[in-house]
Amino acid sequence: MNEEIKKSVIAYIASFANIPASGIKDEYILRDHPLQLDNEKLGFLALALRTYVKNLNPAETVRVTELRGAGMTVKKTCELIVKKLNG
């Protein structure tokens, strides 16, 4: 289940960043090289992940400010979503 969630989160990040999912590494910071997701894109990515989370657990949500936080990496994003879906 966790692997499935991680795969989905990476698919969203990859698509928003226009990078193949296979090229995404855990340590990449969302707003830095090579992903370069700016504030606007991170806002929309948060809404996409919110829809994904609410689809599986309507009681949970994803805030825009969570994705724009300091040093938010791919790994931290996956962990955040896994935590929201696994309680």
Binding site: S8, A11, Y12, A14, S15, F16, F44, L47, A48, T51
Partner: peptide, 9 residues
């Protein structure tokens, strides 16, 4: 509104 994305599985 949210944003659609290409190439999502």
């Amino acid at each position: 509104f949210g944003l659609k994305s290409p190439d999502l599985p």
